[in-house]
Each structure stands twice: as C-alpha cells, then as structure tokens.
Design a protein around this nucleic acid. Sequence first.
DNA 1: GCAAAAGTGTTTCCTCTACACCCATGG
DNA 2: CCATGGGTGTAGAGGAAACACTTTTGC
Lengths: 236, 236
Amino acid sequence: MLKYSGQTRVLVAVDCIIFGFDGESYKLLLIQRGFAPEKKKWSLMGGFVQPEESVDEAANRILKELTGLENVYMEQLHTFGALARDPVERTIAVAYFALIDIQKYEKQLSKEYHAEWFPFKDMPDLIFDHGQMVEMAKNRLRYKASLHPILFELLPEKFTLPQLQALYEGLYDTTFDKRNFNRKLLSTGLFLKQQDKDKDSSKKGAFFYKLDQSKYLTNFEAFLKFIPNPEKFLIT
Amino acid sequence: MLKYSGQTRVLVAVDCIIFGFDGESYKLLLIQRGFAPEKKKWSLMGGFVQPEESVDEAANRILKELTGLENVYMEQLHTFGALARDPVERTIAVAYFALIDIQKYEKQLSKEYHAEWFPFKDMPDLIFDHGQMVEMAKNRLRYKASLHPILFELLPEKFTLPQLQALYEGLYDTTFDKRNFNRKLLSTGLFLKQQDKDKDSSKKGAFFYKLDQSKYLTNFEAFLKFIPNPEKFLIT
DNA sequence: GCAAAAGTGTTTCCTCTACACCCATGG
DNA sequence: CCATGGGTGTAGAGGAAACACTTTTGC
C-alpha cells in the first residue's frame, strides 16, 4: 500500500476518566503507574492505540482491562495535543469519560493495576495533563447532566428518589428542594415505580424506581432541564 | 531522549469545518483536492500535524493557510479514529470547526486551493468521513448556539436585527416571531444600538447594532436560551 | 400612494419556585 | 412513643408564547 511520504507519525494514547457514585459522593478510578516515567504516581487509566483497533475500540479495551465492564456509557471528551504533554515522547491523547455503576466493576482487576477510587475532594496530583483532563470531564458531565438523562448510568438498576437526589446534589455540590426535585424528575416519565422499598437507609423505607428502558433510550438525547439555574454551576 | 518501545506511531491530521453566513444561508468552505487519493474530489481543508506544533496550532495554521484569518473562533469538534477512514494509510483526524465572517477571508488564498463556499442544501459528496464530520459540526453548532452567544462570530462588526434573525432562522431552518425574538436577544444586554441604519435591504432601513465587547467576552459562556423549544431541533 | 420591510405592547398561559406538614417504621 | 427520613400540595411570581397594527420611505 502507498503511504503519505515525508510526514511524521506520532504515538496516540487513550485516557479514560472513570466516574462512579457510591451514594454519598462522586469518585474517580485512578491507577498507580507501574512503569516509568512517573512510576508510582497516580494517573488515569490509559494505553496506546494499537494498529488493529479504532480509537473508540481502544477506549473500550482500556476500560474493560481495568473494570471488566463492557457496554458502558462512554463518550469522547477531548483530544490533548500539546507538544510536551508527555516528557518521554510526543504523544497525542484522546480522552474519554465513562460512567459506571460502582458496584459492578471487578475489584480483582483494580487490584492488579493498583487502582483506587478517589472522591473529587480528595484527589492526588496526577501525572502529565491528567488533572486538566479530569477538570474538563467534570465540567462536561455537569453540563450534560443538566440537560440530559445521563447520570442514571451511575446507579444500579433499582434506585430510590432520595438516592437520585443525592446523585444530582453531589454533582453540583448543592442541595435541592425535594418536592420540586421529585416533581421535575418524575415529570419526565422516565421512571417506573416499583412495589418494593429500600429499607436500608431509613425506617419508613423509600420506594424503588427503575428506568423505563424504552423511554430512556428514545429520550436519551432529549433536551430537558434537570437542575434549576444551571448557569450558576456550569462552565462551557 | 528515551522513547516508548514497541508501539506503533500513526499519522495525525487536522480537518477544519469552516462555517460562513452570507445573510441568506449558511455555507461551508470546501476545497478541491489537488493530490491523490481522491484528487479533484471535494474535501474539508486539512493537513498533518507537524512535529513542532501542537494539534491546536496545526488547526490554526491550516485555517490561516486557506482563509488568511487568525484569532478566529475555532473549537475542537471530535477525533475520528476509525481504522480505514483514510484508505492510504492509517490516519487519525482531529476535526475542528471555525466560524468566520464570510466577508473577511482572502479570496486569493481560496483560489489557490480551488476552494468554494457551498450552502448546506447543495453540498457535494466529500471524501473519506468528511461528510460525517460536517454533520457532527452542524449538530454541534445548533446545539451550542441554542444556549450560548456564538453565532455573532459569523457576522460583520455591524449588523441589524433582521440580519440576526435570519442568522438564527437559517441555522434551525425555521422562522421565529420577530417581536419575541428581538425582545429575547436584546434582553441579553449584549447589543449596542448604533445611530446609523442599513438602508440596503429595505426602504425604511434597519438600525445597526454592535456587540458590547466587554459583556460579550464575559458572557461568552453564559447559559442562555436563545431559541424556543430547542428540543425540536437538537441532536446530542 | 402604495408596496415592502422595520419596529413595537399586551394578554394569556404555564412553568418555576418557595414553602411546611403528615406518614411510616424501627428501635 | 419518639426520632428519623420519606412523601406530598399549593399559591405566587416570572418568563415564554401568541398575536396585529403603525411607521418609514423609495419607487
């Protein structure tokens, strides 16, 4: 096969910002690098794009390596192409962010990679420009979640309204009026009330809900206003 | 300098989706490729990322080569990494979209590249995955413009309210009530009414407005609702 | 004087917000 | 029986949408 001549080829890496929510706070899954440079420093899970896979496939492969999960919500975030972002050799990084149910990932794999979940408030310094990637991913998630039903990817199949509220309040680091919040969420018609209750977190117990999968899939890109006064919270 | 060993390096290209608005309709600046493969076919303006420039710098260089313009609104759109997107050799493309004042570009340069402006309705088939890039860029622009003051980048310094309305109506391929539209736009406080009128497009003449640059810059990322019922028009 | 486009106000409706009490249960 | 968290309704304010006529002026 002919090639383009006289052009320089560069390394292309994929880095994954992996979000989880434990009912209390948002967390990111980070790994401790096992190799130089910056060995032992904390980093996003990443890897180089291989010759026989697309960039999207590389992202899914890398996510699966660390979490064991497939068919997870993942979206391309941004491509980072500064000259010296990797001191070893010029590398262009395509960043993706993923939302996973924190219960589902395989702890075993995490151990192999020396991975840990870090809450937003308590994040270590990251190598290279990974801190910048994380900031951008947080902003993007806040932005998108204010308009689209996306955060449910972080929850297990069954969840309660108080859990849902904690999910939104955690992301925007604020509190919402529960009457208004419940009304708004339920008015989307995306939720199916279940018969059973979650009795773990209160004496009365809170009813479980599930997503109405058919409506969820067709309304996934719907344009809804999930939080009041989004301009107070959003960047970009 | 040490290198990462055993990894494959690939070509990285930048492609620019260049939007313009001539008062009537939206257009894209396309070039006729002067080299194989797909010589003579229409294409986005693009080029390879060079060893001594960042990806963003490459995008600005490429935009300038074709239009002569610098300091133009440009935003990274998406990175396209399918395996066979370029039949010659594996190439990963970072797409950017730019909004320019169609009056300002240098026609001379366009000629050298055999460039032409094509209205949305009348676009030729494009090489590779450039058609897909264009679709994504149009969706992104519609999305972003519904919430943020961004379309003014397409207009000259002085513009009239009817021009502004045509700008929005053209993007969403619809019509708006001019009373509600003017009220909404003016209520942003972004516009300064000028003394003089544009007498070209009507007998009565329409007052010129300018952007209030200070407010424009600070509100650029503001979260405003520019069009009614955005859910009717938007994808992602 | 008339055609063509610019400009301007009001009413209605609906959505958003603020706000407080009762309910169910486990201990 | 009481402490804890879950669940619900309403009234008021503000924003969005629908709607039609007057103004200007070149021809």
